Every structure is written in C-alpha cells, then in structure tokens.
Amino acid sequence: MFDRHGAAAALGSLVLVGSSMVWAPHVQAHGPVHQESVLCTGSSTSTYEPPLTLLPRQTRVQTRASYACAVAPGRTVPATGYLEGKSPAASCVTVNSPRVGEVVHYADGKQSSITYDSSTSIRIAGVLVVRLSGRVVEGRGEGLAAHRTVAALPGELPTSCLLSGLRGSSGEAQLEIRP
C-alpha cells in the first residue's frame, strides 16, 4: 500500500515513463541529423504568488528544476532550470500558464532558452500533471520543439485551498528537446 508521497511518485513515474517512450533521436534516411536533441529528468519545485485557492485568479508561477540531461548518446550532464510566468486563472484545480519561459544551464557550460506557448494541466488523485509545449529560441537545441511534463504534489494539505491557499508544489519533471 502506498502513502501519499508513494502514490504521487508512482503516478509521476508512470506519466514520465509514458511520455519518454515517444522520445528517440531523430534519424533521416541519409544518416543522423546533427541537431542537439536532449532528454532531461529530475525534480521540480514551484511557488505560487498569490497562493492558489478554489477561486481562479492571476498567479505568478516560479519554478526551479534540477535535471540529469542526456545530451548525446552515452553522455549525461547535470543541469538546472528556472521557469517564470503568469497563469491568468490559476486555482487549486488547475494551473494554466500559456506563456512561460525556461532557461536551462548545463554543467558543460551550454544553455537552452525555451519559450512555452501552450500548456495543459489536470489534477488526478491530488497530483497536478502539467505539460508545457514550445520551442528552444536560443542555445542548445535552438529551433527544436520543447516539451516539459511535471507531476507534482502540493506542498501543503489540500485543505489549505479553503484557508490560506497553496503556496507551492514539488514533483518529478521531464524535459524533451527534439525535432
């Protein structure tokens, strides 16, 4: 039997594994494309200002991520990510951030600047699953599609939605940069 964090970890792992099955290096009939596809997995922590309540309202979302990124066959580097954006109508039920940016700093000195222009979110058994889609606008993977999926648990009890609001969440994240 799982406790609350065990269930969230299991659900998050399932979401991340399922979405990673579609990721594979891009190959054409004439050989590999020399674009930098990247697959990152790790942890993600978000804060909400003002805190999330049951009533939707504009909310500033800041997220810090710690990744392990496969940047080439057999080559993985640590990386950190920082996201910031506004959700026009965030609540304890959904966090929808149609315009958000992420900067990923890789341990090998490179970086990726990503602009996400669409998002979907759903809450399943207390776990918030958010998928962001966009493009790398500068740096490693420039011009490639970027998809970020996170399965997160609130930092407080769900009853906080009725009182002071949820101030943050944390969970497992996956970032895919590919053609």
Score class of each variant (00 low, 15 high):
residue 143 G to Y: 01
residue 24 A to S: 03
residue 158 P to I: 03
residue 154 P to N: 11
residue 82 Y to C: 00
residue 151 A to G: 11
residue 20 S to R: 02
residue 10 A to E: 11
residue 72 A to D: 08
residue 51 P to R: 14
residue 81 G to V: 03
residue 161 C to Q: 05
residue 108 D to A: 12
residue 3 D to W: 10
residue 165 G to T: 10
residue 55 L to S: 07
residue 51 P to N: 08
residue 36 E to Q: 12
residue 54 L to Q: 10
residue 119 S to P: 00
residue 33 V to F: 03
residue 150 V to Y: 03
residue 157 L to V: 14
residue 137 V to C: 02
residue 91 S to C: 07
residue 167 R to D: 06
residue 4 R to S: 13
residue 37 S to V: 04
residue 137 V to H: 00
residue 84 E to I: 13
residue 159 T to K: 10
residue 34 H to L: 15
residue 136 V to H: 00
residue 10 A to D: 07
residue 8 A to S: 10
residue 35 Q to A: 11
residue 63 T to S: 09
residue 171 G to F: 02
residue 137 V to T: 15
residue 119 S to M: 12
residue 60 R to Q: 12
residue 11 L to K: 12
residue 8 A to C: 05
residue 161 C to F: 01
residue 127 V to H: 02
residue 118 S to R: 15
residue 160 S to A: 15
residue 43 S to Q: 09
residue 86 K to E: 12
residue 15 V to R: 04
residue 145 A to D: 06
residue 32 P to M: 13
residue 93 V to G: 06
residue 114 I to T: 02
residue 5 H to T: 15
residue 4 R to H: 14
residue 147 H to G: 02
residue 113 S to F: 04
residue 63 T to P: 00
residue 80 T to G: 05
residue 122 I to R: 12
residue 89 A to C: 06
residue 83 L to I: 08
residue 140 R to K: 11
residue 76 T to P: 00
residue 79 A to I: 07
residue 173 A to H: 01
residue 139 G to I: 07
residue 162 L to W: 05
residue 130 V to H: 03
residue 137 V to I: 13
residue 36 E to L: 11
residue 170 S to G: 06
residue 63 T to E: 10
residue 1 M to Y: 13
residue 160 S to H: 09
residue 77 V to Q: 07
residue 54 L to I: 08
residue 89 A to N: 13
residue 25 P to V: 04
residue 62 Q to R: 13
residue 175 L to Q: 01
residue 125 A to N: 12
residue 41 T to G: 05
residue 56 P to W: 02
residue 12 G to I: 09
residue 140 R to N: 01
residue 179 P to D: 07
residue 4 R to A: 14
residue 51 P to H: 06
residue 84 E to W: 03
residue 7 A to R: 15
residue 39 L to C: 00
residue 170 S to Y: 09
residue 120 T to N: 09
residue 4 R to P: 00
residue 101 G to S: 14
residue 101 G to V: 07
residue 12 G to V: 08
residue 30 H to R: 14
residue 30 H to N: 12
residue 129 V to I: 15
residue 124 I to R: 11
residue 107 A to M: 11
residue 131 R to T: 13
